[in-house]
């Protein structure tokens, strides 16, 4: 199952990168969202899947699934959310100011 999840992570990465390479801002934001999903699954798999109980200490249970990747992912989810929110508003504002959401037209000129 780990290999299937890693392939899934690979697919998420690939679609994320493809979206990132597009010109429209909205697609780029979607790309970052997919990228973080891929990264989370990747990290989770590094701690092996379905070994033991959820990592909440319970009497009589000695075998828990790896808590460390989960802690990392938890941090990452929140940060990704912050980034997504910021990017969305940034995209909104950029579009308002420059009347375009095309990255090729947002390159600036040589004086900048």
């Amino acid at each position: 199952m780990e290999i299937i999840i890693l392939i899934l992570a690979g697919v998420l990465f690939a679609t994320a990168i493809y979206n990132l390479l597009q010109k429209q801002l909205f697609r780029i934001i979607i790309g970052t969202v997919l990228l973080s999903h891929g990264a989370h699954l990747f990290i989770l798999t590094m701690g092996k899947l379905k070994r033991g109980q959820p990592p909440v200490l319970t009497d009589g249970v000695t075998d828990y699934s790896d808590p460390l990747p989960q802690a990392l992912i938890l941090t990452s989810i929140v940060i990704s959310f912050g980034i997504t929110a910021l990017l969305l508003v940034l995209a909104y504002r950029t579009t308002q100011e420059n009347k375009t959401d095309n990255m090729e037209e947002l390159r600036g000129n040589s004086n900048e």
Binding site: L6, G10, F13, A14, T15, Y18, F42
Partner: peptide, 14 residues
């Protein structure tokens, strides 16, 4: 680029 990158990540993971 995107397929290569996805493939790379899968291989690293495995």
């Amino acid at each position: 680029i995107s397929v290569g990158f996805g493939l790379m990540m899968t291989l690293i993971g495995i």
